[in-house]
Design a protein around this nucleic acid. Sequence first.
RNA 1: CGGAACGUAGCGCAGCCUGGUAGCGCACUUGUCUGGGGGGCAAGUGGUCGCGGGUUCAAAUCCCGCCGUUCCGACCA
Length: 443
Amino acid sequence: MTPQDFFMRLSQYFIPTLKETPTEAQIVSHRLMLRAGLVRQTSAGIYAWLPLGLRVLRKIEQIVREEQNAAGALEVLMPTIQSADLWKQSGRYEAYGKEMLRIVDRHEREMLYGPTNEEMITDLFRREIKTYRDLPKNLYHIQWKFRDEVRPRFGVMRGREFLMKDAYSFDLDYAGAKKSYQKMFLAYLRTFARMGLQAIPMRADSGAIGGDLSHEFIILAETGESAVFCHPDWLKTDPLRDGVSHDDDLEPFVNKYTGLYAATDEKHKPGSAGIAEEALIKTRGIEVGHIFYFGIKYSKPMGAEVKGPDGNNVALEMGSYGIGVSRLVGAIIEASHDDAGIIWPEPVAPFKVGLINLKTNDAVATKQVDDLYAKLQNAGVSVLLDDRDERPGAKFADMDLIGLPWHVVGGRGLEKGMVEVKNRKTGERGEISIDAALQKLTS
RNA sequence: CGGAACGUAGCGCAGCCUGGUAGCGCACUUGUCUGGGGGGCAAGUGGUCGCGGGUUCAAAUCCCGCCGUUCCGACCA
Protein backbone atom coordinates (compact mmCIF):
# COMPACT_ATOMS: atom_id res chain seq x y z
CA MET A 1 0.00 0.00 0.00
CA THR A 2 1.28 3.43 -0.86
CA PRO A 3 1.13 6.40 1.48
CA GLN A 4 -1.47 8.08 -0.68
CA ASP A 5 -3.88 5.32 0.20
CA PHE A 6 -4.25 6.93 3.60
CA PHE A 7 -5.85 10.00 2.12
CA MET A 8 -8.54 8.58 -0.05
CA ARG A 9 -11.33 10.83 0.98
CA LEU A 10 -13.75 11.52 -1.82
CA SER A 11 -14.02 15.13 -0.71
CA GLN A 12 -10.36 15.53 -1.63
CA TYR A 13 -10.06 13.02 -4.42
CA PHE A 14 -10.75 13.43 -8.12
CA ILE A 15 -13.50 11.24 -9.50
CA PRO A 16 -15.60 13.34 -11.84
CA THR A 17 -18.66 11.13 -12.26
CA LEU A 18 -21.31 11.93 -14.83
CA LYS A 19 -25.00 11.49 -14.40
CA GLU A 20 -25.57 11.59 -18.12
CA THR A 21 -23.79 9.69 -20.86
CA PRO A 22 -21.63 11.63 -23.29
CA THR A 23 -22.90 11.22 -26.84
CA GLU A 24 -19.68 9.82 -28.23
CA ALA A 25 -19.73 6.75 -26.02
CA GLN A 26 -21.60 3.95 -27.67
CA ILE A 27 -20.65 0.77 -25.88
CA VAL A 28 -21.19 0.03 -22.23
CA SER A 29 -17.57 -0.05 -21.09
CA HIS A 30 -16.84 3.26 -22.76
CA ARG A 31 -19.93 4.85 -21.24
CA LEU A 32 -19.10 3.55 -17.80
CA MET A 33 -15.46 4.53 -17.99
CA LEU A 34 -16.47 8.09 -18.75
CA ARG A 35 -19.32 8.19 -16.27
CA ALA A 36 -17.29 6.67 -13.45
CA GLY A 37 -14.50 9.17 -14.04
CA LEU A 38 -11.83 6.67 -15.10
CA VAL A 39 -10.73 8.36 -18.30
CA ARG A 40 -11.31 11.36 -20.52
CA GLN A 41 -10.76 11.42 -24.23
CA THR A 42 -8.26 13.97 -25.47
CA SER A 43 -8.30 13.10 -29.20
CA ALA A 44 -9.90 10.36 -31.24
CA GLY A 45 -8.70 7.10 -29.69
CA ILE A 46 -6.40 8.81 -27.19
CA TYR A 47 -7.24 8.99 -23.50
CA ALA A 48 -6.07 10.60 -20.32
CA TRP A 49 -6.27 8.31 -17.31
CA LEU A 50 -7.75 9.87 -14.20
CA PRO A 51 -6.84 8.68 -10.70
CA LEU A 52 -9.42 5.93 -10.43
CA GLY A 53 -8.79 4.57 -13.92
CA LEU A 54 -5.07 4.73 -13.41
CA ARG A 55 -5.34 2.60 -10.26
CA VAL A 56 -7.14 -0.08 -12.24
CA LEU A 57 -4.61 0.12 -15.03
CA ARG A 58 -1.81 -0.31 -12.51
CA LYS A 59 -3.53 -3.27 -10.86
CA ILE A 60 -3.87 -5.05 -14.16
CA GLU A 61 -0.34 -4.18 -15.14
CA GLN A 62 0.96 -5.61 -11.87
CA ILE A 63 -0.83 -8.93 -12.28
CA VAL A 64 0.53 -9.20 -15.80
CA ARG A 65 4.01 -8.38 -14.52
CA GLU A 66 3.88 -10.93 -11.72
CA GLU A 67 2.83 -13.71 -14.03
CA GLN A 68 5.44 -12.82 -16.61
CA ASN A 69 8.10 -12.84 -13.93
CA ALA A 70 6.83 -16.17 -12.64
CA ALA A 71 7.28 -17.60 -16.12
CA GLY A 72 10.89 -16.48 -16.16
CA ALA A 73 10.44 -13.49 -18.42
CA LEU A 74 12.60 -10.45 -17.68
CA GLU A 75 11.21 -6.96 -17.65
CA VAL A 76 12.85 -4.25 -19.72
CA LEU A 77 11.58 -0.92 -20.99
CA MET A 78 12.04 0.08 -24.57
CA PRO A 79 11.31 3.55 -25.94
CA THR A 80 8.09 4.61 -27.62
CA ILE A 81 9.96 6.37 -30.44
CA GLN A 82 11.95 4.19 -32.76
CA SER A 83 14.23 4.77 -35.72
CA ALA A 84 12.93 3.71 -39.11
CA ASP A 85 16.25 2.06 -39.91
CA LEU A 86 15.49 -1.16 -38.06
CA TRP A 87 12.13 -1.43 -39.73
CA LYS A 88 13.76 -1.09 -43.09
CA GLN A 89 15.99 -4.04 -42.23
CA SER A 90 13.06 -6.27 -41.42
CA GLY A 91 11.15 -5.06 -44.43
CA ARG A 92 8.21 -3.88 -42.40
CA TYR A 93 8.75 -0.17 -42.84
CA GLU A 94 7.10 -0.28 -46.23
CA ALA A 95 4.75 -3.12 -45.36
CA TYR A 96 3.17 -1.58 -42.29
CA GLY A 97 1.15 1.06 -44.03
CA LYS A 98 -0.64 4.07 -42.64
CA GLU A 99 -1.26 2.48 -39.27
CA MET A 100 2.27 3.40 -38.38
CA LEU A 101 2.66 6.93 -37.13
CA ARG A 102 5.72 8.23 -38.89
CA ILE A 103 7.64 11.15 -37.52
CA VAL A 104 10.48 13.23 -38.90
CA ASP A 105 12.88 14.74 -36.40
CA ARG A 106 14.72 18.05 -36.75
CA HIS A 107 17.55 16.38 -38.62
CA GLU A 108 15.07 15.04 -41.14
CA ARG A 109 15.60 11.52 -39.80
CA GLU A 110 12.74 9.14 -40.19
CA MET A 111 11.33 8.05 -36.85
CA LEU A 112 8.14 6.35 -35.79
CA TYR A 113 6.00 5.90 -32.73
CA GLY A 114 6.29 2.18 -32.15
CA PRO A 115 3.28 0.03 -32.92
CA THR A 116 5.22 -3.02 -31.70
CA ASN A 117 8.79 -3.91 -30.86
CA GLU A 118 10.00 -7.02 -32.68
CA GLU A 119 12.66 -5.14 -34.59
CA MET A 120 13.94 -3.24 -31.63
CA ILE A 121 14.16 -6.21 -29.31
CA THR A 122 15.81 -8.29 -32.01
CA ASP A 123 18.38 -5.57 -32.48
CA LEU A 124 19.05 -5.30 -28.77
CA PHE A 125 19.35 -9.01 -28.45
CA ARG A 126 21.66 -9.61 -31.40
CA ARG A 127 24.12 -7.04 -30.12
CA GLU A 128 24.57 -8.76 -26.79
CA ILE A 129 23.87 -12.46 -27.14
CA LYS A 130 26.39 -14.46 -29.12
CA THR A 131 26.19 -18.04 -27.83
CA TYR A 132 23.51 -20.65 -27.37
CA ARG A 133 24.70 -20.93 -23.80
CA ASP A 134 22.86 -17.69 -23.01
CA LEU A 135 19.57 -19.10 -24.26
CA PRO A 136 16.72 -19.33 -23.68
CA LYS A 137 15.66 -15.79 -22.86
CA ASN A 138 12.35 -14.05 -22.73
CA LEU A 139 12.25 -10.27 -22.45
CA TYR A 140 9.11 -8.23 -22.01
CA HIS A 141 8.06 -4.68 -21.43
CA ILE A 142 4.89 -2.83 -20.65
CA GLN A 143 4.79 0.28 -22.75
CA TRP A 144 2.51 2.64 -24.60
CA LYS A 145 2.13 1.94 -28.28
CA PHE A 146 0.49 3.75 -31.11
CA ARG A 147 -1.35 2.43 -34.10
CA ASP A 148 -3.02 5.03 -36.22
CA GLU A 149 -6.27 3.14 -36.63
CA VAL A 150 -8.45 4.42 -39.40
CA ARG A 151 -11.39 4.27 -37.14
CA PRO A 152 -10.75 4.22 -33.42
CA ARG A 153 -13.82 3.25 -31.41
CA PHE A 154 -15.11 1.49 -28.34
CA GLY A 155 -13.18 3.75 -25.98
CA VAL A 156 -9.95 2.20 -24.71
CA MET A 157 -10.84 -1.12 -26.29
CA ARG A 158 -9.74 0.13 -29.63
CA GLY A 159 -7.84 3.30 -29.10
CA ARG A 160 -4.94 4.51 -31.15
CA GLU A 161 -2.66 4.84 -28.16
CA PHE A 162 -2.73 1.83 -25.88
CA LEU A 163 -0.75 0.19 -23.12
CA MET A 164 0.53 -3.21 -24.04
CA LYS A 165 2.66 -5.92 -22.52
CA ASP A 166 4.74 -7.55 -25.16
CA ALA A 167 7.21 -10.34 -24.55
CA TYR A 168 9.74 -11.80 -26.95
CA SER A 169 11.31 -15.21 -26.58
CA PHE A 170 14.64 -16.30 -28.01
CA ASP A 171 15.58 -19.93 -28.40
CA LEU A 172 18.13 -22.03 -30.21
CA ASP A 173 15.71 -24.42 -31.84
CA TYR A 174 12.08 -25.22 -32.38
CA ALA A 175 11.83 -27.46 -29.33
CA GLY A 176 13.06 -24.65 -27.16
CA ALA A 177 10.74 -22.12 -28.82
CA LYS A 178 7.82 -24.41 -28.23
CA LYS A 179 8.71 -24.70 -24.57
CA SER A 180 8.87 -20.91 -24.32
CA TYR A 181 5.52 -20.71 -26.03
CA GLN A 182 3.99 -23.15 -23.60
CA LYS A 183 5.22 -21.18 -20.62
CA MET A 184 3.50 -18.09 -21.97
CA PHE A 185 0.40 -20.14 -22.63
CA LEU A 186 0.29 -21.07 -18.96
CA ALA A 187 1.18 -17.56 -17.84
CA TYR A 188 -1.66 -16.12 -19.91
CA LEU A 189 -4.26 -18.48 -18.55
CA ARG A 190 -3.14 -17.67 -15.03
CA THR A 191 -3.01 -13.93 -15.70
CA PHE A 192 -6.57 -13.66 -16.91
CA ALA A 193 -7.91 -16.06 -14.30
CA ARG A 194 -6.37 -13.89 -11.59
CA MET A 195 -8.35 -10.94 -12.94
CA GLY A 196 -11.56 -12.85 -12.52
CA LEU A 197 -11.93 -13.47 -16.22
CA GLN A 198 -12.79 -16.59 -18.15
CA ALA A 199 -10.20 -16.51 -20.90
CA ILE A 200 -10.19 -19.04 -23.69
CA PRO A 201 -7.27 -19.60 -26.04
CA MET A 202 -8.34 -20.04 -29.62
CA ARG A 203 -6.22 -21.08 -32.52
CA ALA A 204 -5.47 -18.03 -34.57
CA ASP A 205 -3.96 -16.93 -37.78
CA SER A 206 -0.57 -15.51 -37.21
CA GLY A 207 -1.61 -12.60 -39.37
CA ALA A 208 0.73 -10.19 -41.05
CA ILE A 209 3.54 -11.15 -38.73
CA GLY A 210 3.69 -14.77 -39.82
CA GLY A 211 4.24 -18.04 -38.02
CA ASP A 212 2.28 -21.19 -37.35
CA LEU A 213 1.90 -21.68 -33.60
CA SER A 214 -0.55 -19.05 -32.51
CA HIS A 215 -3.38 -18.52 -30.06
CA GLU A 216 -5.64 -15.62 -29.31
CA PHE A 217 -6.92 -15.31 -25.79
CA ILE A 218 -10.51 -14.29 -25.73
CA ILE A 219 -12.43 -13.39 -22.65
CA LEU A 220 -16.11 -14.08 -22.53
CA ALA A 221 -18.41 -11.07 -22.37
CA GLU A 222 -21.97 -10.89 -23.62
CA THR A 223 -21.26 -7.59 -25.32
CA GLY A 224 -17.99 -8.74 -26.89
CA GLU A 225 -16.93 -7.82 -30.38
CA SER A 226 -17.05 -11.28 -31.92
CA ALA A 227 -19.21 -14.36 -31.57
CA VAL A 228 -17.49 -17.40 -30.10
CA PHE A 229 -18.35 -21.05 -29.71
CA CYS A 230 -16.87 -23.21 -27.02
CA HIS A 231 -17.17 -26.54 -25.29
CA PRO A 232 -19.17 -26.32 -22.04
CA ASP A 233 -16.29 -27.88 -20.13
CA TRP A 234 -14.43 -24.60 -20.53
CA LEU A 235 -16.51 -23.19 -17.75
CA LYS A 236 -15.19 -25.87 -15.42
CA THR A 237 -11.55 -25.09 -16.05
CA ASP A 238 -9.47 -23.28 -13.48
CA PRO A 239 -5.87 -22.66 -14.46
CA LEU A 240 -5.09 -21.46 -10.95
CA ARG A 241 -5.87 -24.87 -9.51
CA ASP A 242 -4.20 -27.12 -12.03
CA GLY A 243 -1.13 -27.38 -9.90
CA VAL A 244 1.30 -27.08 -12.79
CA SER A 245 4.52 -25.17 -12.55
CA HIS A 246 6.55 -23.48 -15.25
CA ASP A 247 9.32 -26.02 -14.66
CA ASP A 248 7.05 -28.96 -15.46
CA ASP A 249 6.63 -30.52 -18.83
CA LEU A 250 3.76 -28.32 -20.00
CA GLU A 251 2.83 -30.44 -22.98
CA PRO A 252 0.00 -32.29 -21.19
CA PHE A 253 -1.31 -29.04 -19.75
CA VAL A 254 -1.37 -27.28 -23.09
CA ASN A 255 -2.91 -30.32 -24.76
CA LYS A 256 -5.64 -30.39 -22.16
CA TYR A 257 -6.58 -26.79 -22.79
CA THR A 258 -6.18 -26.82 -26.54
CA GLY A 259 -8.09 -30.08 -26.74
CA LEU A 260 -11.33 -28.46 -25.72
CA TYR A 261 -13.17 -27.00 -28.66
CA ALA A 262 -13.25 -23.24 -28.99
CA ALA A 263 -13.53 -21.08 -32.06
CA THR A 264 -14.51 -17.61 -33.10
CA ASP A 265 -17.37 -17.14 -35.46
CA GLU A 266 -15.19 -16.93 -38.53
CA LYS A 267 -13.22 -20.06 -37.66
CA HIS A 268 -16.12 -22.09 -36.43
CA LYS A 269 -17.04 -25.12 -38.53
CA PRO A 270 -20.36 -26.60 -37.44
CA GLY A 271 -20.01 -30.27 -36.63
CA SER A 272 -16.29 -30.12 -35.93
CA ALA A 273 -16.52 -29.65 -32.19
CA GLY A 274 -16.70 -33.32 -31.31
CA ILE A 275 -19.95 -32.80 -29.42
CA ALA A 276 -23.45 -31.95 -30.50
CA GLU A 277 -23.69 -28.51 -32.03
CA GLU A 278 -26.52 -27.61 -29.64
CA ALA A 279 -24.36 -28.45 -26.64
CA LEU A 280 -21.80 -25.79 -27.54
CA ILE A 281 -21.83 -22.57 -25.62
CA LYS A 282 -22.48 -19.69 -27.92
CA THR A 283 -21.51 -16.34 -26.57
CA ARG A 284 -19.36 -13.39 -27.42
CA GLY A 285 -15.81 -12.49 -26.60
CA ILE A 286 -13.08 -9.88 -26.66
CA GLU A 287 -9.51 -10.58 -27.64
CA VAL A 288 -7.15 -9.48 -24.90
CA GLY A 289 -4.02 -11.41 -25.72
CA HIS A 290 -2.22 -13.05 -28.57
CA ILE A 291 0.78 -15.34 -28.49
CA PHE A 292 2.65 -16.67 -31.43
CA TYR A 293 5.76 -18.38 -32.56
CA PHE A 294 7.30 -16.90 -35.68
CA GLY A 295 10.63 -18.67 -35.92
CA ILE A 296 13.33 -16.77 -37.77
CA LYS A 297 11.12 -14.20 -39.45
CA TYR A 298 13.03 -11.30 -37.92
CA SER A 299 16.23 -12.94 -36.74
CA LYS A 300 17.12 -14.07 -40.25
CA PRO A 301 16.85 -10.73 -42.13
CA MET A 302 18.28 -8.86 -39.17
CA GLY A 303 21.15 -11.27 -38.63
CA ALA A 304 20.30 -12.19 -35.05
CA GLU A 305 22.36 -15.33 -34.66
CA VAL A 306 24.24 -17.25 -32.00
CA LYS A 307 26.91 -19.89 -32.16
CA GLY A 308 25.37 -23.30 -31.70
CA PRO A 309 27.01 -26.24 -29.91
CA ASP A 310 28.51 -27.37 -33.20
CA GLY A 311 30.18 -24.04 -33.80
CA ASN A 312 27.83 -22.94 -36.58
CA ASN A 313 25.78 -19.77 -36.53
CA VAL A 314 22.09 -20.32 -35.98
CA ALA A 315 19.32 -17.78 -36.47
CA LEU A 316 17.30 -17.32 -33.30
CA GLU A 317 13.92 -18.95 -32.97
CA MET A 318 11.54 -16.34 -31.72
CA GLY A 319 8.03 -15.84 -30.50
CA SER A 320 6.10 -12.84 -29.30
CA TYR A 321 3.37 -12.54 -26.74
CA GLY A 322 1.08 -9.57 -26.31
CA ILE A 323 -1.51 -8.53 -23.77
CA GLY A 324 -3.62 -5.44 -24.26
CA VAL A 325 -3.33 -3.92 -20.81
CA SER A 326 -5.40 -0.80 -21.40
CA ARG A 327 -7.88 -2.78 -23.47
CA LEU A 328 -8.36 -5.10 -20.50
CA VAL A 329 -9.81 -2.27 -18.46
CA GLY A 330 -12.63 -1.95 -20.97
CA ALA A 331 -12.90 -5.68 -21.49
CA ILE A 332 -13.28 -6.36 -17.79
CA ILE A 333 -16.11 -3.85 -17.61
CA GLU A 334 -17.79 -5.45 -20.60
CA ALA A 335 -17.61 -8.74 -18.75
CA SER A 336 -18.66 -7.36 -15.39
CA HIS A 337 -21.25 -4.63 -15.00
CA ASP A 338 -24.96 -4.05 -14.47
CA ASP A 339 -27.43 -1.25 -15.05
CA ALA A 340 -26.11 0.72 -12.11
CA GLY A 341 -22.48 0.63 -13.12
CA ILE A 342 -19.20 -1.25 -13.01
CA ILE A 343 -18.68 -4.36 -10.90
CA TRP A 344 -14.93 -4.70 -10.37
CA PRO A 345 -13.52 -8.13 -9.75
CA GLU A 346 -11.67 -7.70 -6.47
CA PRO A 347 -8.13 -8.30 -7.82
CA VAL A 348 -8.37 -5.34 -10.19
CA ALA A 349 -10.68 -3.07 -8.20
CA PRO A 350 -9.26 0.41 -7.64
CA PHE A 351 -10.24 0.05 -3.99
CA LYS A 352 -11.58 -2.96 -2.16
CA VAL A 353 -14.01 -1.04 0.00
CA GLY A 354 -16.17 2.01 -0.49
CA LEU A 355 -17.06 3.48 2.88
CA ILE A 356 -19.98 5.87 2.91
CA ASN A 357 -20.53 8.33 5.71
CA LEU A 358 -24.17 9.39 5.64
CA LYS A 359 -23.81 11.44 8.81
CA THR A 360 -21.22 13.97 7.79
CA ASN A 361 -22.91 16.61 9.91
CA ASP A 362 -22.76 14.44 13.03
CA ALA A 363 -19.40 14.60 14.78
CA VAL A 364 -19.87 11.43 16.80
CA ALA A 365 -20.98 9.36 13.84
CA THR A 366 -18.21 10.79 11.69
CA LYS A 367 -15.68 9.79 14.34
CA GLN A 368 -17.00 6.23 14.19
CA VAL A 369 -16.73 6.11 10.42
CA ASP A 370 -13.27 7.69 10.43
CA ASP A 371 -12.13 5.13 13.00
CA LEU A 372 -13.33 2.28 10.81
CA TYR A 373 -11.63 3.91 7.85
CA ALA A 374 -8.33 4.08 9.72
CA LYS A 375 -8.61 0.52 10.98
CA LEU A 376 -9.27 -0.84 7.53
CA GLN A 377 -6.34 1.14 6.15
CA ASN A 378 -4.07 -0.13 8.91
CA ALA A 379 -5.13 -3.67 8.13
CA GLY A 380 -3.94 -3.13 4.56
CA VAL A 381 -7.36 -2.82 3.00
CA SER A 382 -7.69 -0.11 0.38
CA VAL A 383 -10.66 2.09 1.16
CA LEU A 384 -12.33 4.99 -0.57
CA LEU A 385 -14.19 7.11 1.96
CA ASP A 386 -17.16 9.09 0.76
CA ASP A 387 -17.14 11.95 3.23
CA ARG A 388 -18.86 14.42 0.93
CA ASP A 389 -21.86 16.39 2.08
CA GLU A 390 -24.15 14.87 -0.51
CA ARG A 391 -27.58 13.36 -0.48
CA PRO A 392 -27.63 9.64 0.35
CA GLY A 393 -29.07 8.84 -3.07
CA ALA A 394 -26.21 10.56 -4.85
CA LYS A 395 -23.68 8.70 -2.74
CA PHE A 396 -25.24 5.33 -3.35
CA ALA A 397 -25.54 5.99 -7.05
CA ASP A 398 -21.91 7.07 -7.34
CA MET A 399 -20.70 4.11 -5.31
CA ASP A 400 -22.62 1.67 -7.48
CA LEU A 401 -21.33 3.38 -10.60
CA ILE A 402 -17.72 3.22 -9.47
CA GLY A 403 -18.28 -0.43 -8.64
CA LEU A 404 -16.00 -1.15 -5.71
CA PRO A 405 -16.51 -4.75 -4.50
CA TRP A 406 -17.68 -3.90 -0.97
CA HIS A 407 -19.74 -0.98 0.23
CA VAL A 408 -19.95 -0.07 3.86
CA VAL A 409 -22.62 2.41 4.86
CA GLY A 410 -22.38 4.31 8.12
CA GLY A 411 -25.74 5.92 8.80
CA ARG A 412 -28.52 5.78 11.30
CA GLY A 413 -27.33 2.40 12.60
CA LEU A 414 -24.18 4.01 13.96
CA GLU A 415 -25.88 4.92 17.24
CA LYS A 416 -26.04 1.21 17.93
CA GLY A 417 -22.59 0.65 16.50
CA MET A 418 -23.96 -0.89 13.33
CA VAL A 419 -23.09 -0.40 9.67
CA GLU A 420 -24.51 -1.85 6.51
CA VAL A 421 -22.23 -4.01 4.40
CA LYS A 422 -23.14 -4.61 0.81
CA ASN A 423 -21.62 -6.84 -1.80
CA ARG A 424 -21.64 -4.92 -5.08
CA LYS A 425 -21.74 -8.04 -7.21
CA THR A 426 -24.48 -10.02 -5.48
CA GLY A 427 -26.34 -7.05 -4.07
CA GLU A 428 -26.46 -8.92 -0.79
CA ARG A 429 -26.44 -6.61 2.19
CA GLY A 430 -26.96 -6.66 5.88
CA GLU A 431 -26.55 -4.63 9.04
CA ILE A 432 -23.70 -5.80 11.20
CA SER A 433 -21.57 -4.36 13.97
CA ILE A 434 -18.56 -2.23 13.10
CA ASP A 435 -16.26 -4.89 14.52
CA ALA A 436 -17.93 -7.60 12.49
CA ALA A 437 -17.57 -5.48 9.37
CA LEU A 438 -13.90 -4.97 10.10
CA GLN A 439 -13.52 -8.70 10.60
CA LYS A 440 -15.38 -9.52 7.41
CA LEU A 441 -13.43 -7.14 5.23
CA THR A 442 -9.98 -7.93 6.57
CA SER A 443 -10.28 -11.71 6.53
C1' C B 1 -10.28 4.49 -47.08
C1' G B 2 -15.79 4.08 -49.06
C1' G B 3 -20.87 5.53 -47.02
C1' A B 4 -23.70 8.63 -43.27
C1' A B 5 -24.57 12.04 -39.37
C1' C B 6 -23.47 15.59 -35.82
C1' G B 7 -20.78 20.20 -33.68
C1' U B 8 -25.42 25.76 -29.57
C1' A B 9 -23.12 26.86 -21.28
C1' G B 10 -19.24 21.62 -17.80
C1' C B 11 -22.97 17.36 -19.50
C1' G B 12 -27.64 16.08 -22.23
C1' C B 13 -30.52 18.70 -25.70
C1' A B 14 -34.26 22.42 -28.21
C1' G B 15 -34.01 26.54 -31.57
C1' C B 16 -32.18 26.13 -37.88
C1' C B 17 -36.83 24.03 -42.30
C1' U B 18 -39.70 29.62 -42.73
C1' G B 19 -33.07 34.87 -40.97
C1' G B 20 -35.03 39.55 -36.50
C1' U B 21 -33.08 40.22 -28.17
C1' A B 22 -29.80 32.51 -27.53
C1' G B 23 -33.30 28.87 -24.59
C1' C B 24 -34.53 24.20 -21.42
C1' G B 25 -33.02 20.14 -17.95
C1' C B 26 -28.94 18.61 -15.05
C1' A B 27 -24.43 20.45 -12.95
C1' C B 28 -22.19 24.90 -10.51
C1' U B 29 -22.58 29.50 -6.67
C1' U B 30 -25.38 31.74 -2.29
C1' G B 31 -29.26 31.19 1.33
C1' U B 32 -32.80 27.99 3.49
C1' C B 33 -35.56 23.56 4.62
C1' U B 34 -34.19 18.52 4.30
C1' G B 35 -31.30 14.00 5.29
C1' G B 36 -31.17 5.84 3.59
C1' G B 37 -31.37 5.52 -3.40
C1' G B 38 -29.24 11.37 -7.94
C1' G B 39 -34.74 16.10 -2.76
C1' G B 40 -37.71 21.05 -2.22
C1' C B 41 -37.96 26.49 -2.27
C1' A B 42 -35.62 31.24 -3.47
C1' A B 43 -31.88 34.05 -5.80
C1' G B 44 -27.64 33.74 -9.13
C1' U B 45 -23.09 32.56 -12.42
C1' G B 46 -21.91 30.72 -17.02
C1' G B 47 -22.32 30.72 -24.39
C1' U B 48 -16.78 34.52 -29.82
C1' C B 49 -23.79 29.16 -31.39
C1' G B 50 -16.56 24.46 -33.95
C1' C B 51 -13.32 27.87 -37.29
C1' G B 52 -12.94 31.00 -41.73
C1' G B 53 -15.27 33.32 -45.71
C1' G B 54 -19.78 34.75 -48.42
C1' U B 55 -25.17 36.43 -49.08
C1' U B 56 -28.25 40.11 -46.31
C1' C B 57 -30.26 46.14 -43.32
C1' A B 58 -29.76 41.76 -40.13
C1' A B 59 -26.97 34.90 -39.79
C1' A B 60 -27.01 29.83 -34.53
C1' U B 61 -30.47 29.80 -38.84
C1' C B 62 -29.05 30.39 -45.92
C1' C B 63 -24.34 29.27 -49.21
C1' C B 64 -18.96 27.72 -49.74
C1' G B 65 -14.49 25.88 -47.52
C1' C B 66 -11.85 23.88 -43.43
C1' C B 67 -11.40 21.47 -38.63
C1' G B 68 -13.27 18.14 -34.95
C1' U B 69 -16.22 14.05 -33.12
C1' U B 70 -19.32 9.85 -33.91
C1' C B 71 -21.90 5.80 -36.55
C1' C B 72 -22.03 1.65 -40.64
C1' G B 73 -18.51 -1.02 -43.77
C1' A B 74 -13.29 -2.84 -44.91
C1' C B 75 -8.92 -3.33 -41.06
C1' C B 76 -6.95 -4.50 -35.98
C1' A B 77 -4.13 -5.99 -29.22
